[in-house]
Amino acid sequence: MSEHSDNERIADLGFARVDHDREARNGVPEVIFGEGKRAEQISAIVTCLRERHRRALVTRLDAERAECVLRDHPGGTYDPASRLLRWGEAPGRLPGRVAVICAGTSDLPVAEEAAQTLEWLGVEVARLSDVGVAGLDRLLAHRTAIARADVLIVVAGMEGALPSVVTGLVRNPVIAVPTSVGYGASLQGVTALLGMLSACATGMSVVNIDNGFGAAWQAASILGLVAHGVNPAPVDFSHNADAPGS
């Protein structure tokens, strides 16, 4: 049994405090980070989320624990490549399309984490795989499709060059994702991360190493501005330092 507080905004499970109010704040229920949690803990959090929001997403979950959680919550979809476990769908679709571009086959798990998170968030996804800079003709063959994407997520390991190339071809936002794929001097993705952060191409942002989920969230946030518009007035925070009398 969960113990609720703050007018049902938080469900206190003892080992976790499920933030039900998050959907009201940013439009999406709390997402469960699977690493470090036992299957029974994940299952209890999923129960909370599905009862309240009718959908749930677990990231970074291995197949063994996913099987245990699915015994308690049948009907979910688990993908061993992306390590995502999900139930339900977004209540509506966001406008536009995100292209998820993957440099090499070894980068696909991170790319699929991004693509499948986007789909759960209600975003149309176009996938383009194995088009790294070692063979630029593979990328340029899809130049028209790339230019038509509203947001682009570019996933690459090794030296991390692909996002800079893509950014130089398009006018829309590019989100670069370094992966830990590569030989010794790639330093588990640090080389790709630093290369992307040092890129001269304008219009590119960078997320953390192997963070396909974070890239997907950022892309969906950009499309959300198209769907809902910009805030007509500043957000009113109760402890705003600029408020009268503060």
Rank of each mutant, 00 (worst) to 15 (best):
L61I: 12
V46R: 00
S82L: 08
R38A: 15
C68N: 07
R71E: 07
F33M: 08
A63L: 08
T77R: 08
A39H: 11
P80H: 11
A81C: 14
L70M: 14
C68Q: 11
L61A: 05
E30D: 03
S82W: 07
R38V: 13
F33Q: 11
E23Q: 15
P80F: 13
G34W: 01
D72E: 11
A81P: 04
P29C: 11
D62H: 12
R55M: 08
G75I: 13
S82M: 04
V58L: 06
D62V: 10
E40P: 06
E67T: 03
K37I: 05
R25D: 09
R54K: 15
V28Y: 06
R38K: 14
N26P: 07
A44R: 00
A39D: 10
R25F: 11
E30V: 04
P74D: 06
E67H: 01
D62E: 13
A56M: 05
A66N: 00
E35R: 13
D19H: 13
K37W: 03
R60Y: 04
T77H: 10
S43K: 01
G34D: 05
A56T: 08
D72F: 07
N26S: 05
Y78C: 10
R38L: 15
V46L: 02
D79R: 05
V28N: 01
E35L: 12
N26W: 13
Y78G: 02
R60H: 05
R50E: 10
P29R: 08
R65D: 14
R60E: 09
E64Y: 01
L61T: 04
R60N: 06
D19A: 12
T47W: 01
D79Q: 05
F33I: 14
P80E: 13
E35Y: 09
T77L: 05
C48D: 13
L57G: 12
E51F: 10
A24S: 14
F33D: 01
V58T: 09
D21A: 15
V46K: 00
E51D: 13
R38Y: 15
R25L: 07
R52P: 05
R55A: 12
L49T: 00
V69M: 02
D72M: 03
P74W: 03
V31R: 13
D72P: 00
E64Q: 00
E40D: 13
V28Q: 09
